[in-house]
Amino acid sequence: MELVEKHRSSCTECGQCIEVCPRYNDLGLLERLYGYLEGHSDIDGDSLLRCLTCGLCKDACPEGLGIKMLISPARQKWVSEHGLTDRQKMVDPEAENNLFKKIAELDETPVYEERSGSVVYFPGCAGTYINKIMAQATVALLDKAAVDYTVMSGVEYCCGAVSAGSGDPGPIRRNGQRNIEEIRKRGAKTLITACPGCFKAFKDIYPKMFGKLDFQVLHVSQYLELLIREGKLAPEVVLKHKVFYHDPCHLTRVMGVYREAREVLKHIRGTELANETPENSACCGFGGGVRVNYPSESLDVASDRYRAAEKLGCDTIITNCGGCMQNLIEAGKDERIEVFDLAEYLSLACGIKIEREDSRMLELVNKAYRLCISGYGKSDCL
């Protein structure tokens, strides 16, 4: 297999990937992955499921390799041989145990007017059903800036990126072209996404699968920074906080977007940004399916972000990813540091306050996990 040969011939086995990895501590994993991908040996599922797909290993590797580039194809091979588990199917829009459909049965889902617009806001499944504050705050800011926008929300527009990351490319193949056509139909010149996974899907995966897009794709942090730069949003409220910006893995390490969110925070009076670069940034523990496969371990990783923020003397953590926000809030139930989505924090600076119910959100999502996944949490006491 060409990928294996490239990795094997370039890897010096220096161990720097393992040194930074929050999940693996055995360099022998590489040989197990080589053998499995080449068809010489089998591999245990735990070796594949523990990966957060955070990209820390690639950043640390002198050759730009890391472990993730082997994990992703190995997961797809595993699925082709063993089939999909209920954990892998739970974000497939057509699955009976779809997590977001289950949450919609348990709670009211915000409804946004579907219309034409030069800007399409794509809150993703997390922003639509779980971290609703992200979408509500962004829509409020778009209204304040008098943007001609429309919202594409709901599981029927799922981008498919999370399923693909778990080894199931089906949803992205089924939904991708249809999503592109819907955006075109609404007359959009710009698409803005809330979720880093959705951003990667539209910015990177879709063009490779379906051809060049005829609209611009921006992450919401990029668009908010643009609105401030153009004078369409002017933060006027003083927010006196020392802020730790938590870089979402797939936005920062995978897609290289980290500057704009920091620029937004620098425009908010009273706010001091403690970490001006993504140096030493790390994962929240949510990604790669780890949150549903190893719940307590996932939250332990998230707790490390509070220690990093405390070390810098921060009283606030800001992020702009639904998964990061969910994990940080749940891991920080007993912490004194507050967690905000970037759009929510900016909305406060613009005089807009939207009520948030963290305890209700956590209750709903964990109930949905238990209803959608067999044996969820029985070995991890949540």
Rank of each mutant, 00 (worst) to 15 (best):
G256S: 04
L233D: 07
S281T: 10
R259V: 03
R229C: 03
C284I: 07
V292Y: 15
V243E: 04
E230V: 10
E230Y: 06
G285C: 10
I228K: 15
P235S: 15
V237R: 10
N293K: 11
T271Y: 05
L233M: 10
L273F: 13
H267C: 15
E230R: 11
Y258G: 01
A234H: 13
V264E: 04
G270W: 02
K242R: 15
L251N: 02
F244W: 14
E230G: 02
H267M: 15
G289I: 09
K240L: 08
L227E: 08
R229H: 10
V243L: 05
R259L: 05
R291H: 14
I268K: 04
P235R: 13
R269L: 02
E236T: 13
V237P: 01
G288W: 01
L273A: 11
P278Q: 06
R253M: 01
V238T: 09
V237K: 13
L233H: 05
F244V: 15
E236W: 05
C284E: 09
L227S: 08
T277K: 04
C249K: 03
I268W: 04
T271F: 06
A261R: 02
I228A: 12
E263N: 15
K266A: 05
R262D: 02
V254I: 12
K232P: 10
L227V: 15
E236D: 14
G231H: 07
E276C: 07
L251G: 01
G231K: 04
T277Y: 07
G256E: 02
A261N: 04
R269H: 08
H267R: 15
S281M: 08
V243Y: 10
R291I: 14
Y245E: 02
L227D: 08
P248N: 05
H267W: 00
E263K: 14
K232S: 13
I268A: 05
A234P: 03
P248F: 01
Y258V: 02
K266H: 06
E260C: 00
C249M: 06
